[in-house]
């Protein structure tokens, strides 16, 4: 068995807009099969980082390798298009507004596998819609008829259309009510376990970080200042990290997770 290649390797990434340097000497490795959360203050370039990884933004310098494929090299003949191996959920869902949810899911399928039988494509669209936690009837709805939470799930269904190995989520729980956000976290975790996904998750939601992330990468001053589990991050002495995780909201999120674990433990004991 050869060594498993990491999902994403970023080395010495630099992104600049004119004189404004967003990233400088940024390095990060995302392992296969983990959920990595990316946090950072507003304007630290979390979304720019994601856009650079998925090739929407040409970096000024540095190397990005995704699933063993260098992003700056032209694709080799016979290579499966790297874009069919990842799925992206943009912040607002970014659904095509003139297509129904099911048609949205079918777009990548049509693009990458035009020979596929239409009947199979429709079936795939239907079950992906339900797999993303939407009711079956939502398949025929247009994006404007959906609520914010449903739109995110529809965007997720499209991101999952090609059974990707790698899933990018840009602030998936932003703008959702706490119940909807918790449900989305649960869905992400469940899909991660069932489908064996690697998830690259940009978020401000401390509950999400505590609940589903295996590791957290902290972005500040243009590079990744720390990567690790939340207890590991707390052990570092960077003031921003402490302010972030040890602030009133951070403590509340940690306490909420402790309570939930306690509840699960006690219910497990009662059953035993």
């Amino acid at each position: 068995m050869t060594e498993v290649t990491p999902a994403i390797v970023i080395e010495g990434l630099e992104n600049r807009f004119g004189d404004h340097v967003v990233h400088h000497d940024l390095s990060l490795t995302v392992r296969r099969g983990e959920i990595i959360g990316v946090v950072g203050g507003s304007g630290t370039g979390k979304s720019v980082l994601m856009r650079a990884i998925i090739g929407l933004q040409q970096p000024s310098a540095g190397r990005i390798t995704v699933l063993g494929q260098a992003m700056d090299a032209p694709p080799m003949r016979g290579d499966v298009d790297i874009r069919s191996r990842w799925g992206v959920l943009f912040q607002g869902g970014a659904l095509f507004s003139t297509l129904t949810v099911a048609e949205n899911v079918e777009v990548p399928l049509k693009e990458f596998y035009p020979d596929m039988e239409p009947a199979l494509r429709h079936e795939i669209a239907r079950y992906k819609v339900m797999l993303s936690g939407l009711p079956a009837e939502a398949a025929a709805k247009y994006p404007s008829e959906l609520s914010g939470g449903m739109r995110k799930r529809a965007g997720l269904a499209r991101a999952l259309a090609l059974d990707p190995e790698l899933l990018f989520l840009d602030e998936p729980t932003a703008g959702l009510d706490p119940i909807g956000a918790a449900a989305f976290d649960h869905l992400t975790r469940e899909l991660h376990e069932t489908l064996g996904l690697t998830v690259f998750l940009i978020t401000h939601d401390l509950d999400t970080l505590h609940e589903i992330c295996d590791r957290v990468a902290v972005l500040a001053d243009g590079h990744v200042i720390a990567v690790g589990t939340i207890p590991e991050l707390m052990a570092s002495d960077h003031p921003w990290i402490h302010e972030y995780f040890d602030g009133p909201r951070g403590r509340a999120a940690a306490a909420a997770q402790d309570r939930q674990h306690a509840r699960l433990d006690s219910s497990a004991q009662t059953k035993a």
């Binding site: 048609e103 339900m130 398949a139 025929a140």
Partner: peptide, 14 residues
């Protein structure tokens, strides 16, 4: 996982 997602709902509005 897919067994639970079986449906024959229409994919475009009727």
């Amino acid at each position: 996982a897919v067994r639970g997602c079986d449906s024959d709902a229409p994919i475009v509005p009727i």
